[in-house]
Design a protein around this nucleic acid. Structure first.
Lengths: 338, 338
DNA sequence: GGCGTAAATGTAAACCTTTACATGAGAAAT
DNA sequence: ATTTCTCATGTAAAGGTTTACATTTACGCC
C-alpha cells in the first residue's frame, strides 16, 4: 500500500513476529514453526515484499551476480553460450553481468572492480588468457570458470568441447570419402583449443596410415580473411590438397569463398570442413559440413561448475569436455578423379 | 596488507581523518581542503580501497546496474547494439545486466525482481512490447529506454533507425536500376518498425509514379524460412516481380536461397534488398545489398538517454532516429529484359 | 513440583556507506 | 574585543539484512 518498497520490517509487523523470524522463515524454513511460517508467507504476499539484494549482499559479503567476460560479444560463438549461462544462473537466483575486453588487458583490469567492490561473486571467462595485467595476477582471483577453451595461465576449471575427438571425427569423415591429401588450415594464435584440433587431425591421419609427406599444414588467425589467404597460398604450390580441414568455421568460410572465387565447385573440386557450427555455416552455399559445439550445454555446465565453486562444494571435476557432433551438410564429397 | 578488502575506515585511519571526510574527498572533492584531499588520495592508493558498491547502493537506494532485456540474445542485431550499450555504461560507472525473455511474458516478469530488489536502476528494452504481464503494467516502471524499435505500449523513449527513410532509400535504389515491378516482403507481426519500412517502400513507389496495380506485397514473419516461403508463393502467380525488397536481412536471405534453389541467378534474374545489414549479409553469394542500422551508435545513444533519465536531467529528446545508410553489394542489378 | 532439554522466537550487533547536523577554528565585520 | 560568518571536519544515524546469542515456552521425566 505504501509507495516505498516493503521491507522485512513491514512483513514482520503484519505477521506479528520479529524480523529475525521473517528472515528465518525465508531462508531456514525448517527452523520456524509451521503456523508462523504461514503467517509470514501471508504477510509477504500481502506486501509484495522482495528482499533488498544490496542489504543482503552487504551483510553476507557475497553478491548474486556472475560476471561474464568475453573478448568480443559479437563472436558468433558467444551468444548461444551466454544463453546457456544465463538460464542456469537465473534458475539459481543469480544474475549475469557482462563485460567485453576487445583483447585489451586494460579493459580486463577495469572489470576487476566488480569484484573489489563486491558486486560480483564469480566469473566466467571466454578468453583463453586471463585478461588482466600481470600486477593483478598475483592477487587472488575470484572463483572463475573458463569456457570454450582452457584458460592458459592459471589452473582454472574449464568447460568445453573435446576438440581432439571432434577434429578426429572431421578428418575421419574426409578419409572415409576417399581423401588422402588433406590440408589443415590452423590458427597460429597459441590457443590450446586450436592446438588440440590440430593434434586430433594428425591423430586421424596417422591412424589412416597417411604419410607425413602428403600432409599440408598452414596457419592463419582464425578469421574469414585468413581462410581466403590460405587458399591463395596453397595455389602457389605444385601439389594441391583435395580437402581442406579448417580449424574453425570462420576459416572454412574464408576457404570456401576463396575457392568459389577461383571458379571451383564445392564439393566437386574440393571438400571443406569447419569446426564450431556457427549459425552462418548452415547458410553457406553449399552448407558447411562441420563439428558442432553444443554451446547451450557448455554454458549450462560452466555455470553449474561455477555455482559449485561458489557454494564451497568441492566440484566433481574441474575439466568438463562435451562430445562434439558431426553436422553433415554439402561441403564434403569424394575427391575429384585426376 | 590485510587480507579482507579495505574499507573506508581503513583509509580514514591512515589518512588520519574521519570516514566522512574520506567519503567527501571522493564524491565532493571541492568540499575538502586540498591538503586533506591529498592525504586521502595517498591512503586510498596505499590500501587499494574500492568503495563497497552494495553498501553504497543500500544507502543511496539506487544501484549502478542497467538491465538489458532482449527477446533473444542470439539475434544477430543484438550483439553489436549491446557493445554500444556496454561501452557507454562502463564509461559512466554503470554495469550491464542481461536478460532474455524468449518472447515469454512470464520470463519478463522474473526480471522485474532486479528492480524490486534494488539491483538495477534502469532498463533497456529490445522488445517492441513490454515483456510483463498486465498486472504489473500498472505498477510504475523503472526508467526505461527502447532500442531498435519503439515500445508499443507505454510512452517510452526510444532510439532506433529511421525506418521510413531507410526503406525509401532501398526502393529508390531499385527504381534507379530500372525496376518497376517490386515485391515487398513484409513481416506480419505488428511491430512499428516493420510497418514503417513498408510505408517507406510505398512512399518511394508513389514518388516514382508506379501504379498500385503493379505492386506486390506479401507478409512473412521475418525469418529466413518465411523468405523462402514468399518465393514459393510468388511463383504461383502469373506475373512475377523483377525485384524483392525485404523487410529485413533474414527474409532477404531466405528469398535469395529460394531463388537460387530454383536455379535463378541474382542479380541477373532478380534483384534483392534487405534491411539491417546483419553480419551474414556480407557473406552471401552474391553479397546482399541492404540498409545498415548503425548498431553501435544506437546502443550508445540509448544508454546516454537512459543515463539522462536516471540523473533526472530532462532528456533533450525522447525519440532519436539515426540515419540509415545504403550498403551496396551485389544483389541488385538492372531488371532482366523479357 | 522441580529440573533438564529442545524448540521457537526475540534482541541487538554487524556489514559499509552517505549525509544531516554539530562542532570548531579562523577571518571578517562591528 | 565581541559577534558573525564561512569553511573544514567530525559525530552519529540510517539504509535492510543476517545471525550469534539470549530468552521464553513447552514438554518429559524423576
Amino acid at each position: 500500500m505504501s509507495n516505498s518498497p516493503a521491507t522485512i520490517e513491514d512483513v514482520a509487523r503484519i505477521a506479528e513476529v520479529s524480523i529475525a523470524t521473517v528472515s528465518r522463515a525465508i531462508h531456514l524454513p525448517e527452523k520456524v514453526a509451521v503456523s508462523t511460517r504461514l503467517k509470514v508467507a501471508h504477510a509477504i504476499a500481502l506486501t509484495g515484499y522482495t528482499p533488498n539484494a544490496n542489504a543482503r549482499s552487504l551483510r553476507l559479503g557475497k553478491s548474486n551476480m556472475i560476471l561474464v567476460v568475453a573478448p568480443d560479444i559479437g563472436d558468433p560463438n558467444f551468444s548461444s553460450i551466454l544463453v546457456g549461462l544465463e538460464n542456469e544462473a537465473r534458475a539459481h537466483g543469480y544474475g549475469v553481468l557482462i563485460g567485453h575486453t576487445q583483447n585489451d588487458a586494460q579493459r580486463g583490469v577495469e572489470y576487476l572492480k566488480f569484484f573489489s567492490s563486491n558486486q560480483a561473486a564469480g566469473m566466467i571467462l571466454f578468453t583463453g588468457i586471463l585478461p588482466f595485467g600481470h600486477q593483478t595476477m598475483t592477487a587472488r582471483l575470484p572463483p572463475t570458470v573458463g569456457v570454450f577453451e582452457p584458460v592458459f595461465n592459471g589452473g582454472i576449471p574449464y568447460v568445453g568441447v573435446d576438440d581432439l575427438e571432434g577434429a578426429r571425427k572431421a578428418v575421419e569423415l574426409l578419409i572415409a570419402e576417399g581423401h588422402r591429401r588433406i590440408a589443415f588450415i590452423g590458427d597460429a594464435r597459441n590457443r590450446l583449443a586450436y592446438v588440440r584440433r590440430r593434434m586430433g587431425c594428425e591423430a586421424g591421419l596417422d591412424a589412416a596410415g597417411i604419410p607425413e609427406a602428403s600432409r599440408i599444414v598452414l596457419d592463419g588467425d582464425g578469421t574469414i580473411e585468413s581462410g581466403r589467404l590460405a587458399v591463395d597460398q596453397l595455389f602457389l604450390r605444385d601439389t594441391l590438397p583435395t580437402a581442406f580441414m579448417c580449424v574453425n568455421d570462420q576459416t572454412a568460410i574464408g576457404v570456401m569463398l576463396g575457392l568459389t572465387a577461383r571458379g571451383y565447385d564445392i564439393p566437386r573440386d574440393f571438400s571443406v570442413t569447419g569446426f564450431d557450427d556457427v549459425p552462418q555455416a548452415a547458410f553457406m552455399q553449399p552448407g558447411l559440413t562441420t563439428i558442432r559445439q553444443p554451446r547451450g550445454l557448455i554454458g549450462k555446465h560452466a555455470m553449474q561448475l561455477l555455482l559449485q565453486l561458489l557454494s564451497d562444494t568441492e566440484p566433481a571435476q574441474t575439466e568438463i569436455l562435451l562430445r562434439p557432433d558431426v553436422v553433415v551438410r554439402n561441403s564434403v564429397g569424394p575427391p575429384r578423379r585426376l
